[in-house]
Design a binder for these strands. Structure first.
Length: 376
RNA sequence: GGGGAGAUACCAAAGUGGCCAACUGGGGCAGACUGUAACUCUGCUGGCGUAUGCCUUCGGAGGUUCGAAUCCUCCUCUCCCCA
């Protein structure tokens, strides 16, 4: 993997660049659609490439390990082959699932014991076997195994958790270096900064992660319920320490505004379930603000779904039609909404990139932020 | 012609003297959703801008009672069975 910055903004920390992988280039800043279980829910791969123009998508270690399992994954020749996606893939390590499935987890120094949500069977994730699993999956970017602390989180817990994540990181990197890619393409290992909302912990963690010298770095444990000001403050601290010349990935973020503010603070990569999940639940993100498609006001509004939209669905269907599909629980509604939202998110980061290159990012960002929070 | 059952809020359906402005489900309306156990979850759904408050409701009209959706009388309508 190689990263080069094409243009850095003067008024902010924003930059645009290109990440080169064996599965193609990624123009940054980038938003990565989440495809947890070998599918971006309700969206075809052809739509992702031809219409939405996603440079890279996510997969999830936890889900793929449980189903279909690594035997199938190896037999398929990896996730790219399995799902018919030949662009880059990043897999999350399962660290977030350890957090979100808190009811069943048990953390030990060696790793996380958990019960499958599918059949209740018991499993153990370790910093090492999570690398093995992601080798089997064959993701271009593989994530370190971490604990994503909840919010609120007391300082003691946050500190202990961060140190646990750091110790897991040492084991993970060692195992990563000891093992090899299985399908002939290069894989990049990404360590994750933790530290909750505590500046001293974030500083310590960012320094620890930066010292590992990996090709890209990630920021985790944010957008878990903390005030956005805290998230932005942590980003500023962390990105002041993580190396400028390497991609920075803010995990799980976020709203369109979060993404713009993240870009302004030097983040290059984002992922979030919001465009797909909220889309399935009837929410549309647009350049003019958000729309709840279930609202009665769209009932007889036959105007284009989104006049400014870049996806084919925006011009092919009306607001009234999508409302009908969503309200009726029709699957096509989830598809149209997901495609629209992802296309919007990808438009947003592409536009940000163009504005950075044009030198007009900050003023554009500030005016966008004002509009995006409004409700249509 | 004979016998029987029933009419409850947008729909379906509980309740059969006070704890009922009325269970529950659907529908409707609104909100939430941030490294996806999520086509999910939450709230509201007679009126009064809020209410542990007031007002008007349970086919219609009377009546019994301190008190009725619940008991009585008559009326209207619906459904089922036998001829």
């Amino acid at each position: 993997m190689n990263f080069r910055i094409v243009k850095s903004d003067i008024e902010s920390q924003a930059r645009s660049g290109i990440i080169e992988t064996d599965h193609g280039n990624i123009q940054t800043p980038i938003f990565m659609p989440v495809g947890t279980a070998a599918t971006v829910k309700a969206v075809h791969q052809t739509e992702l490439t031809n219409d939405i123009n996603a440079d890279i998508i996510l997969g999830n270690t936890y889900h793929l390990y449980l189903r279909p399992g690594m035997e199938v994954m190896r037999a398929a020749g990896g996730l790219h082959n399995f799902m018919g996606w030949n662009r880059p893939i990043l897999t999350d390590s399962g660290g977030y699932q350890v957090f979100s499935l808190a009811a069943n987890r048990k953390l030990k120094s060696e790793g996380a014991y958990f019960s499958s949500h599918i059949d209740g069977s018991k499993h153990l994730f370790t910093p090492e076997n999570v690398v093995d699993i992601q080798r089997d999956i064959g993701a271009d970017f593989i994530m370190a195994f971490d604990e994503c602390t909840p919010y609120p989180c007391d300082p003691k817990y946050a500190r202990d958790s961060m140190h646990l994540t750091h110790s897991w990181l040492g084991k993970g990197i060692k195992h990563f270096k000891y093992t090899e890619s299985k399908y002939g393409h290069n894989q990049c290992f990404i360590p994750i900064v933790q530290g909750s909302v505590y500046p001293d912990l974030r500083k310590e963690s960012a320094e620890f992660i930066a010292a590992q010298g990996m090709d890209a770095n990630a920021i985790g444990g944010l957008s878990v319920g903390e005030p956005v000001e805290d998230m932005y403050a942590m980003l500023e601290i962390v990105n002041g320490i993580l190396p400028v010349e390497k991609p920075r990935y803010l995990m799980g973020v976020g709203t369109p505004v979060n993404i713009l503010e993240g870009i302004a603070r030097g983040v290059d990569m984002f992922d979030c379930v919001m465009p797909t999940r909220n889309g399935r639940n009837g929410m549309l993100f647009t350049q003019k603000g958000i729309m709840n498609m279930r609202n009665e006001k769209w009932k007889s509004d036959f105007s284009l779904l989104d006049h400014d939209g870049t996806s084919f669905v925006d011009k092919a269907y009306s607001k009234a039609y999508l409302r009908h599909l969503i309200v009726s629980g029709e699957r096509l509604g989830a598809q149209i909404a997901s495609i629209h939202n992802l296309a919007f998110y990808l438009w947003l980061v592409r536009e940000a990139r163009d504005q950075i290159i044009a030198g007009s990012f900050t003023s554009w960002k500030n005016s966008m932020v004002k509009v995006l929070v409004s409700r249509l």
